[in-house]
Design a binder for these strands. Structure first.
Lengths: 377, 377
DNA sequence: TTGTACGCGTTATCAC
DNA sequence: GTGATAACGCGTACAA
């Protein structure tokens, strides 16, 4: 019942030519070998009639390329986060006729090495190492055996390895500019990190978002009216921090360092009898699934998971196609974090249509990830 | 820099033996070839010293097995649903030293075939075809080239192909039994499907859940006090259906055919001034992420996504290891849907601890998926 | 007990 | 223009 696989030799035999001729004919390199058009057509015909499909395994053995990429994540494919990363990678890989070998390490370095070697042994063309949160990771030596790119992560040392990360600093700029554009000037306060360096331990996002915010405010000759850092970016901390802030100043706008903090801030503002956005504007980062559900819906700069995944595959493939990144600045590719305009900032037009479209279909258009602001979440 | 891969021939040479000897020694079949222990040790040593790792590609070409399984889903890895299916499959595959090749069809049959052949050509040992919702799917002939199992789906014809599905009928029984055990008898009503056959078009879950419910009630000589079918199982329909029900009868308990309907029912009950569970108990199916968040938290029978994914790999591997399922009844493997006891049914002890544990770590224990009631959601 | 030789299905290098 | 022939790395009958 199960039809036997037909080999190139059989096709060649059926067409009455040698294997070499058949191989070149099917590879579209007939001219190269000066194979006559009739012979080429005969081979193609025989191949189609027999239902010939090249054996990718033996081709892989011979050529060294398996048309397969490994994707190793430190977290389960289960969170919306990892899911969208994988989705982007999947689509981009398919566009380039590659398949994805996927695995997760659950944070176990031992397992991570095992999975890397397992994939390398299977001849993957390259490896993508993805992290749930942006962080520095130790690159095992085994990774040097094949091209690799870090997704949402930096090498802890100065290894020559590509990184794809969200552009946190630029996101900070966008947040600050958005506030300025909507008429805010005095009374801009920070929840989550402060210019005095308070914030979560070793959080790259924290310092880069802050940098972006301050650079824009500084250029506009504006000082933050207040800031409360939080060691942990959860709603409870946002609530507490906002309470402390309100005891000292009367903000006109709150920049929360992520959406969860903003959820807490909403609560504190409500407790103080303040309305969003009429009394206080709120803007933040991440575009958590809840951000569009909460009332008033939260204006936030999104982590572009789909684009991150797609970009990782792109960068890897570019590397495979032989343009090894040599200049250090090309080593890290920063993906734009798109602004989701909603209701929580005073005086901004809320494009609910765009929001709906964004959660509908978020494919990367063409090869310009920076333009693809339609991340699905 | 990139260390070259070391081959078996090199190991053999280093150990001063033939390739054959080295091969047998490393395969643990030294005795079989009556290779001296010293020689065996020497080979192992040489292999370790040289950092030898067998080339899986060439082994695959030779043996026909790639230690790789294909997982093709019709939906993005993005939903919590698909994510947990994949998670279960990933863990189970790793336990058996296999890697997973993952892809998604986005519902495109053409793409589905392409992906199947792409995986088959790469020598996958077997294929798992997963569906988002339980349904009948047309099995492309190409699938017959390798062992395959359907996940959350049945073959539309009578193909000899294994299926792994949630045990919807048994879940219906559990729901009915739970209500009886908590003292309910009269006043049990149905929201979502009715004994008159009203319900979503071609929904297997609908008829099987109903079957289970009715069989238990029938055995207890109890009739449903009312039932309203819904074509669509969304909150809005649940709200509307419950309203219509309340206009005619006064229920003591509501069996909603899924959690989303239950969310709507909650609303209708509140509107009517009825308390859950004091006035009316509510129980349903799926264990939607929101089910444990809503107040009062919803007692429901969970779709065991993690276990489904793991079971699919198990069934496939069993097939690979050469016990082809012949008897038709062994062709479909039904996975128990575990009851999540929460607050919405009167007189049931709510084990919040169990709930917390359930969302913490949900690994499949041993080889008995039916026992693994700790699905993560 | 060990070594030789062939095959898995391709692709690539040569002579003819 | 074409057709043997040699790899790629490994597994395994078979001969020594």
């Amino acid at each position: 019942m199960a039809k036997k696989r037909v080999t190139l030799a059989q096709v060649a035999h059926a067409a009455g030519v040698s294997q070499t001729a058949a191989s070149y004919a099917l590879a579209g390199r007939a001219a190269e070998m000066r194979i006559s058009p009739e012979v080429e057509a005969r081979v193609r015909r025989a191949a189609r009639d027999a239902g010939y499909r090249p054996n990718a395994v033996s081709r892989s053995l011979r050529t060294g390329s398996s048309q397969t990429v490994g994707f190793i994540s430190d977290t389960v494919a289960t969170t919306a986060f990892a899911g969208h990363l994988i989705w982007g990678a999947l689509d981009q890989a398919r566009e380039r006729d590659h398949l994805l070998l996927i695995a997760e390490t659950e944070g176990d370095p031992q397992l991570e090495r095992e999975l890397m070697t397992a994939m390398l042994d299977r001849g993957v063309d390259g490896l993508i190492i993805a992290s749930m949160y942006t962080r520095a990771i130790a690159v095992p030596p085994v990774l040097m055996e094949a091209p690799a790119v870090l997704l949402n992560a930096f090498p802890v040392g100065d290894e020559m390895i590509c990184s794809v990360v969200p552009d946190e600093r630029e996101a900070g700029c966008v947040v600050a500019r958005t506030l300025l554009a909507s008429g805010h000037a005095d009374g801009i306060c920070l929840i989550g990190a402060s210019p005095r360096g308070e914030g979560p331990q070793g959080s790259l996002a924290s310092v880069q978002r802050l940098e972006g915010i301050l650079s824009v405010l500084h250029a506009a000759r504006i000082d933050v009216a207040g800031a409360v850092g939080c060691a942990d970016w959860q709603p409870a901390q946002g609530l507490e921090a906002t309470r402390r802030l309100l005891a000292e100043v009367t903000p006109s706008a709150l920049i929360c360092f992520n959406d969860r903090l903003a959820f807490g801030a909403y609560q504190a503002l409500a407790d103080a009898g303040l309305e969003v956005p009429d009394d206080v504007s709120v803007i933040s980062f991440d575009d958590d699934p809840l951000a569009s559900w909460i009332r008033p819906s939260l204006t936030t700069v999104a982590l572009p998971h789909y684009e991150l995944g797609a970009a990782a595959v792109q960068v890897l493939m570019d590397q495979l196609e032989g343009r090894p990144q040599e200049s250090a600045e090309r080593l890290v590719r920063r993906i734009t974090m798109p602004l989701r305009v909603r209701e929580s900032v005073r005086g901004l037009a809320h494009d609910s249509a765009g929001d709906a479209a964004a959660r509908g279909a978020g494919k990367l258009v063409g090869a310009a990830p920076a333009r693809a602001h339609t991340t699905v979440q």
